[in-house]
Amino acid sequence: MKPIHAMRPWSLTLLSAVLSLSGCFDGEPASRATAPPAQAPVTVEHGLGRTEVPRPVLRTVALDMNEVDFLDQLQVPIAAMPKDFVPDYLARYRDAADTLDAGAIVQPNLERVHAARPDLILITSLQANHYRALSEIAPTVQYDVDYRDSHSGYTEVIRQHLTTLGQIYDKQALAAEKIAALDADLARARAVTTGRSERALVVLHNNGAFTTFGVKSRYGFVFSELGVQPASAELDTGLHGQPISSEFIQQANPDILYVVDRTAVMEGRPRLNAETLSNPLLRQTNAWRQGRVRFVDPQAWYVTAASPTALSRIVDDVIEGYQD
């Protein structure tokens, strides 16, 4: 073998490449050798604290369906997620072998989360009581959406979260496109509701019982941001609504009635419709007589409601309520 100093230039280049390649297998995993270069971390301030997120983030655990939808919209792979209540528009993740089952939305399985080897964990207030334990596994960021009162700043929180995730995953341009689409959906709703006098009621159906949601409640944004006129503006309710009777709905006499069928989601039953909702008092309302009872997408309204796909579907349902 010739001494290195006697080799031709192309031989030195080849030898350098061989030695470099062999180093990848000399005690260093190939995945580490081919990993993307480190980027500047992103610091996120949220309701539970201040989280520094090292980048790049290659493996993400999303513990809320809203977060799953955000990641799906931004084309970010999902390492693990709860698979107990997955909306139909995210169904491809339910059986995906490369997306681990992280347990239940309200009770994530911490061992499975750990087994997913996340670089980042995304949560909402539904998992807030696990924040400390999750933070010991990986940097954890809470999406500060208020599920109890969406009357003020609701869609701005969605915009901000899209912007934050765009920074974390280096998807700023795509995040900006999703924000523009969100604004277009809001404008679409306002174009229909502005100047309309119809009053609407949002009710949740649960095994034959009803609760309703006022202007400061889980569905407050329907009134404040989509421009729907409330049939009962005095009702200030929270996450699960205020229990009401059929007589209440009859007396409120809404022109439009939006029915969210919780039972269909929680028990996997067929969604209610005009034939299966046999309630004589509801049939006496203006909404029923005018054919403006809308059995809305329960997965978008109840399981998510705070993500791009969900909001677009909610806008579709709201607009449909104004159609004869």
Rank of each mutant, 00 (worst) to 15 (best):
D255V: 01
I244C: 11
L186E: 00
D185M: 05
A176K: 13
S224Q: 13
V228Y: 12
D236A: 15
F223A: 05
V222D: 03
Y258H: 04
A176I: 10
A189Q: 01
P243L: 09
G195H: 11
P254G: 04
I256C: 04
V192H: 12
D261W: 08
S224D: 10
A181N: 03
T194F: 00
T193I: 08
N253I: 03
A191K: 15
L201W: 05
H240R: 05
I249G: 03
L204A: 12
A264F: 00
F221L: 11
G195K: 15
Q251M: 01
A252C: 04
S246Y: 10
A181M: 02
S217K: 07
L204G: 14
R196D: 06
D255W: 01
E247K: 15
G214D: 13
I256D: 02
Q242N: 10
A180P: 02
Q251W: 00
V260I: 13
G195Q: 13
H205P: 07
A187H: 10
E225N: 10
Y258F: 14
D236R: 14
V202G: 03
D236C: 09
F213Y: 15
V192W: 09
D261E: 07
A187C: 03
D185E: 11
A209Y: 10
G241F: 07
V265Q: 02
T263V: 00
N207S: 10
A175V: 14
G208R: 11
N206G: 07
N253V: 04
F213P: 06
A189G: 13
V203E: 11
P254F: 05
F223D: 00
D236L: 11
Q250V: 00
S217I: 10
Y219I: 05
H240E: 01
R199S: 05
R188W: 01
R262V: 07
L182V: 12
A180N: 09
Q251Y: 00
R218L: 04
N206Y: 14
V222A: 13
I249Q: 03
R199Y: 03
S224P: 07
V202Y: 03
G241S: 12
F221C: 09
N253H: 02
G195S: 14
V259N: 03
K216I: 06
N206I: 06
G227L: 12
A233F: 01
D185T: 08
L182I: 05
V265R: 04
L186Y: 00
G238E: 07
R196W: 05
G208L: 14
E225T: 14
H240Q: 04
N206Q: 14
E177L: 11
G227R: 11
R190Q: 15
G208S: 15
V265M: 06
A191L: 10
L239D: 12
L226M: 11
N206H: 15
V215Y: 00
F213G: 06
D261T: 08
L235H: 09
T263E: 00
D236G: 15
I249D: 03
V265T: 07
A200I: 01
L201C: 03
H205W: 09
V259Y: 08
R262Y: 02
V203R: 13
R196V: 04
V203N: 08
Y219S: 09
F221N: 07
